[in-house]
Structure formats: C-alpha cells, structure tokens
Design a protein around this nucleic acid. Structure first.
Length: 554
RNA sequence: UGACCUAUGGUGUAACUGGCAACACGUCUGAUUUUGGUUCAGAAGAGUUCAGGUUCGACCCCUGAUAGGUCAACCA
C-alpha cells in the first residue's frame, strides 16, 4: 500500500511536450540548460527553474548544462558565479558541463559576420535615443534607420572597426534587418551587438563589443545542442527572434518553451529588488535568513529536499501565480519533523525549585527524536533548580490551561510529574520562583503514579544551562504582494522581521551543535545553528515554528 | 488603435484529451499523544470569468466579450 503514485502523477505541460517529442522520435535524448546571469544570488524562483530543468532531464534520461549568461560585463562578477554553483549543488543537482556564453564570443562574432554577408544585419550609427524614437510604439510602426541599406562591404568594415575599438561606446551598433513594422517590437531591427569598453570577468579586455541577450542565448543553446530551452514567460515575445536567428544562421534548432515564474507571498522575488534590500541594508546580506535567496533559506535552516518538494508541489504552468508561504513552511516541517534532533531550550526563563529534592542530580535518558526509532537518546540532568518558560505558569489560569498552575499537575518532559504549591514574588509583584514538589514514582518511562496530566513542559536545569542566542524571523513584508501595492515596495517592509533573544537557556547537549544537524526545540519550533556562532557564543536561527493550535485561540 | 500570453474552492495544481470537478496547503471539528507538535478520523468551501454556439453530453471544442499579465533597456 505504499504510495507508488509518483509515476502516475500527471505531467506538467513541459513534460508533456518532451514525452511527445521523445515518443515521436524528434530526439533520441534531451538536453536542457540552466542559464543564470552571474549578477546576483539565486532565489526561490531560480530554485523552481533549476528543479524544472534538471528535474525534467533526469526524469527523461537526459542531461543539463549550467551556463552563465555573461554577455554584459558591467553587471557580472565571479562572486556570483561561485555562489550560483554552490547553490545548484546544494539543491542536489549535477550539471553535465559548465559553460559560459562568453565561451562563444568568437563563434558569435562569426555568426554576426554571416548575417551581415547575407544582408540580414547592418551597422547603425543612430544613438540610443534615436533608435528608441524610431522604434515606434506597440500600435504604430517604427521607421527604418537611414543606415539600414549600407552595402555588405561597408557593414563588414564597420563591424570590424567596432571590434577593433575604433568607435566610442554608443557610437555604433549592429542591428538585425528584420521588419520595423512588426507587431512584435523585438523584431523591429533589434540590436545584436553594442560597444562596451568594460572588463569582462572571463575574457578580460579582449572584447569591446558584446552580443545582446537575443544574439547570444539561442545561439548558445544551439551550439550546445540544447533540445528544450526553458525560460520564463517574459521571454515569450523573444521566441520569434530566437527562431529567426537560428533559421537565418542555419544552425541546430533548439526550441524555446516558457513557463510562469514562481512567486511567494510576503516577499519579493526579483534580483533587482533583492539587491536593493542588500545595498540599502534592510537585510544583512544576500544570505540573510529572511531573504528568499537559496543561500538565505539554507542559512535559516530550510533543507534542499524541502525546497525541491515545495517547487514540485507548486507546479509548472503558464499562468502567473503567487504561492502561499505556508506551503513552503509545510514542506519544511514535514521533513524536519522526521529528521530534527529534539532539544529543550527555555527562551524566557523563570526559576522552579523542586522543594522535595536534595542537591543531587538525577540523570535521565531522553529520546532524540520520537519519529525516528533509531534516533537514540541523550542524557539530561534533572536537578533541584530548573528553568521553565514564564508563559508556562499562570496564577489564575483560564479553563483549558494545561500548563503549570498552583495545585495543578504537569509533566516535565522526559522527567517527572510535578505539582506547584507556591510562588515567590519580588517587590514589584513579579514571580521570581515557583515552588513545586516532584512525584518520584512518575519518572518518565516507568510511571507508576497512575496520574494523568494534560500538559508537558520543556525545562532546563539551572546549574547546567547553556546560554544561547536565538534569532527569530517574521515575514519580510507586511503585505502579501509588495509589487502590487501603491508606491515603492520598500514602503511595505516589516520592520519587526527580526527578533533576537540574546540569552535563552539551553540544555548542555546543544554546546556541540553544528550545521550538520537541524534541531527541534521542544514546543518552540525548528532551529539551525547560524554561521556567526563562535566558541562561547552559540546562535540559532529559527527556521519555522511548530503548528500551534493553542496560541491561535487566544 | 496593436500583438502575444493567461483565466478551475482562500491558495496552488489535477481532471484518463468531450462523460455531470479530484488532490495538496490553509481553515474548522473530534480522537490519540510525556511536544497544545506528530499521527488518525471527519467537515466546510468551487459547479470551472461571462454570454452564446456545436454535441445525447463541454472545465475541455467554436464565437464574442470581460479581467489580469507581457512587449517600445546599447539588461537578461
């Protein structure tokens, strides 16, 4: 009765296309590519694309290349190249080859020369403003450039001069000669090459002309013999140009398919906006745990498997969507519930004195994970003085309060049932100590007391307590879709998205916590050690809380 | 006075390609529980944007509306 329904799951529209292509023998095997521009860190939207490109290839026995779309040297950097590779690997995917669009600059130059020879491209002297003015509008045809009918020889010479650095930036461009009256703005003699005296992160100063996206992407796909070139919806109008270039050049016909990008509510998902959050210090960096970047989510404690599961559940379609963050959180909890080590940490401590206990400690073995039979146990010392959460005690409890109150029984997790008798207060009326007695025969696992308690509390021995810093995160924005609101998206930043608890009291086992493990702090949520943790100063990021059906009612 | 893309419960995805809408998240009950977690059982919630048409039969095909999105960067 195990669920082998995986195979029966309906295919998304891309998979349907591929299955059909394979069945009809159009390809013997497929090859996809993930083509990030190295000008920012990868985010959840990229994760969706990565899962699609690598996932679909894997599913149909194909391969995937990682290709950096580095045709604009002014925005690109090796820092990003490295983080992107790390993120793809961390997500659990392996590429067949790593390529760069810049690997093809020589070939691309030759392709441009070919177009010129065929009369399909020309060197234009118009400025950016003039070209824009002559472009027309979506409802009005553009006008042809006066340089449109230069001779092939002249174009060849001019293009060579462009490459040789004989012109200033912006002085000349190479344009395709297509149709200034096309209803598709991209077909109105689009730019193919522009002059940029910029240092390229890979080719250095070899080039001063760089191909535009539209003259690099399709050709790169073709050179690599990519069968299915999958991109997002905003490239739909580019497909006509993509096909035009391939047809004119007579090269391998890769095919472009478009799907809707993934959006998640209460955050933003564009590199431009994320870069702004970083630069203007609304967050501490690209890997701030509040960021929807892959590095941010990793630091926060989200797992690769959970992210993959989320992308899978969100699906691939052509309709624009905003997926609820609760689905991502569900995927994270679903996995962490099965794998996280259980530990006890008291965030807002109040002291409990077990009055019928002496100074000797009682050693208890407590399970590491009740969901994992092989999870083992750890030893925890139960002592006369303990910490519990301040909110776990009430002097005048409401009707269904299952926690500690005077005269009420409550279990301390993995230890004993205790009964509260008395509280000690300071001059201001604040509780400083809670006095309880424990019931020796109620020891966890060998309880012969016959008592039934409704509540179980987490606790930490005062003399063994390890102070740790806790960082809790809330959503980055106050509104579901900051992009859809009036004004600037930054107006909707949630200024309370970070809450630090500088000194929570943890059980001593946490002293050895590393990022190799995810933790569940009992009744608190899932936590993950932060990279800023040092020897004497351990920091945990709250990954996601536990579902809390009690808090909601209040 | 344009072209292109899209339209299914609150959200996301399905519907064997024409046989009277399914799954997940979320929500709400109840049971279990040494985490008010997990697990288990159950409930509410859409008649598929609208109007026509074809058909014995339409979420699916056709026509026309409507709504949302995209396109006029020497960005990708």
């Amino acid at each position: 009765m195990e669920s082998h329904t995986e195979e029966n799951k309906s295919l998304n529209f891309i998979e349907e296309i591929i299955e059909k292509d394979l069945q009809e023998g159009r390809y013997s095997s497929i090859l996809t590519r993930f083509p990030p521009e190295p000008n920012g860190y990868l985010h959840m939207g990229h994760a969706s694309s990565i899962c699609l490109n690598f996932g679909v290839a894997k599913k149909f026995g194909g391969k995937t290349n990682l290709r950096f779309d580095d045709t604009n040297p002014v925005t690109e950097d090796t820092e990003y190249v490295e983080s992107i590779q790390e993120d793809v690997k961390w997500l659990g995917f392996e590429w067949e080859n790593v390529f760069y669009a810049s690997d093809y600059f020589d070939q691309l130059y030759d392709y441009a020369v070919q177009l010129i020879r065929q009369g399909d491209a020309y060197v234009c002297d118009l400025s950016a403003e003039e070209i824009a003015a002559q472009k027309g509008t979506p409802t009005e045809a553009g006008t042809e450039s006066p340089y449109r009918n230069r001779s092939v020889e002249e174009n060849l010479q001019l293009f060579a001069d462009m490459k040789a650095g004989k012109f200033q930036e912006g002085e000349k461009t190479l344009r395709a000669k297509i149709d200034m009256a096309s209803t598709n703005m991209l077909m109105r003699d689009p730019l193919l090459y522009r002059i940029k005296y910029a240092h390229h992160h890979r080719t250095g100063d070899k080039w001063c002309i760089y191909p535009m996206y539209d003259f690099a992407h399709g050709q790169s796909d073709s050179i690599e013999r990519i069968t299915h070139s999958i991109c997002t919806l905003e490239f739909v109008p580019h497909r006509e140009l993509y096909d035009w270039c391939i047809a004119r050049l007579g090269i391998y016909p890769s095919k472009q398919y478009e799907f809707a990008r993934l959006n998640v509510n209460y955050t933003v998902m564009s590199k431009r906006k994320l870069l702004q959050l970083v630069n203007e210090q609304h967050v501490t960096g690209w890997d701030d745990p509040r960021m929807p970047t892959i590095s941010g989510m990793r630091r926060r404690g989200y797992t690769a498997a959970a992210i993959r599961e989320f992308c899978d559940r969100a699906g691939i379609t052509k309709r624009e969507k905003v997926v609820d963050i609760s689905l991502l959180e569900f995927c994270v909890r679903e996995e962490l519930n099965k794998t996280a080590l259980r530990r006890m940490v008291v965030f807002d401590p109040v002291k409990v004195v077990i009055t019928n206990m002496d100074e000797n400690e009682i050693l208890l073995d407590i399970e590491n994970n009740p969901e994992d039979e092989n999870g083992g146990t750890r030893q925890v010392a139960f002592t006369r003085e303990l910490y519990i959460e301040r909110e776990d005690f009430m002097e005048n409890p409401p009707k269904k309060y299952f926690r500690m109150a005077i005269g009420q029984h409550v279990r301390l997790k993995g230890a004993y049932i205790v009964t509260c008798h008395d509280v000690v207060k300071d001059a201001d009326g604040n509780i400083t100590e809670i006095h309880c007695t424990y019931i020796p025969e109620s020891r966890s696992g060998q309880d012969t007391s016959g008592l039934k308690v409704q509540g179980t509390l987490h606790w930490v021995s005062v003399q063994h307590a390890l102070p740790v810093e806790i960082r809790e995160y809330d959503r980055l924005f106050k509104v579901e879709n900051p992009n859809a609101e009036e004004g600037d998206f930054k107006d909707y930043i949630n200024e309370n998205s970070l809450h630090v608890i500088p000194r929570a009291m943890a059980e001593p086992a946490l002293a050895e916590a590393t990022t190799a493990n995810h933790f569940q702090f009992l009744r608190k949520g899932y936590f993950y050690p932060d990279k800023e943790s040092g020897k004497g100063h351990i920091i945990f990021n709250k990954t996601v809380g536990l579902k809390d059906s009690w808090a909601k009612k209040g």
